[in-house]
């Protein structure tokens, strides 16, 4: 029984997308531009050559935020979306009716339709693959060249993530929506 979260040292990110591929290979995610559990966003750099605004070119890795108050869970008519025992937001594909309400409700664009099961899929924190085998890292974390990600138990005061969040300033995405994300961006 843990409360899993992830801290992202996002300034390290070089937009290499190793995380995206590792996730797809580990979790058997389909190919296709729309089918990703995890992604890295970039903005078009501002300014005119050669006076470009370097700061505007930051990369922002993202995925399901595993919200504590997940809008996707609230709106699910059959409770197909649920919190598992580790507070990971999961989808039970047997119960999913593909009404797509959660896709509309998730403020982070974290959900997509898996065409094979025709149900909604999303990041599972590798719960049914790596964690189920007793591993302690997620695929996206393990592979990252610049070690952006630290995954761990927020309830364990001695975990590395707890330590990071105690000692480093951080923010969450769209925090004003009250979703209480469990992805933390370290500054």
């Amino acid at each position: 029984m843990a409360r899993y979260g992830m801290a992202l040292d996002y300034k390290n990110c070089i937009n290499c997308k190793a995380c995206e591929v590792a996730c797809k290979e580990e979790n058997g995610v389909e190919l296709g531009a729309e089918k990703h559990r995890i992604w890295v966003g970039a903005n078009d750099v501002k300014g005119e050559w050669p006076l470009l605004d370097i700061a505007s070119a930051a990369f922002l890795p993202s995925q399901c935020q595993h919200c504590e108050d997940a809008p996707c869970q609230e709106v699910c008519p059959t409770n197909a979306t649920y919190y598992d025992e580790n507070h990971v937001v999961r989808v039970d594909s047997d119960k999913c009716i593909l009404c797509s309400y959660c896709m509309n409700a998730c403020p982070y664009d974290a959900r997509y339709v898996d065409d094979r099961t025709m149900t909604v899929d999303k990041c599972t924190f590798c719960s049914d693959t790596r964690l189920a085998r007793g591993e302690t890292t997620t695929a996206c974390q393990a592979t990252c060249p610049t070690k952006v990600r630290t995954f761990g138990d927020l309830d364990d005061p001695n975990s590395e993530i707890s330590e990071l969040l105690r000692t480093r300033e951080h923010f969450s995405l769209k925090a004003h929506l009250g979703t209480n994300p469990k992805l933390f961006y370290l500054t």
Binding site: V75, P77, T78, K95, C96, I97, C99, Y101, V113, M118
Partner: peptide, 23 residues
């Protein structure tokens, strides 16, 4: 439009999502 209308009828009853406007 609903991907699985039959599943819907079953789980609407078995595991109702009472916080869901669609339910």
């Amino acid at each position: 439009e609903i991907g699985h209308p039959v599943t819907m009828m079953i789980y609407n009853v078995l595991t109702p999502g009472l916080t869901s406007a669609i339910w």
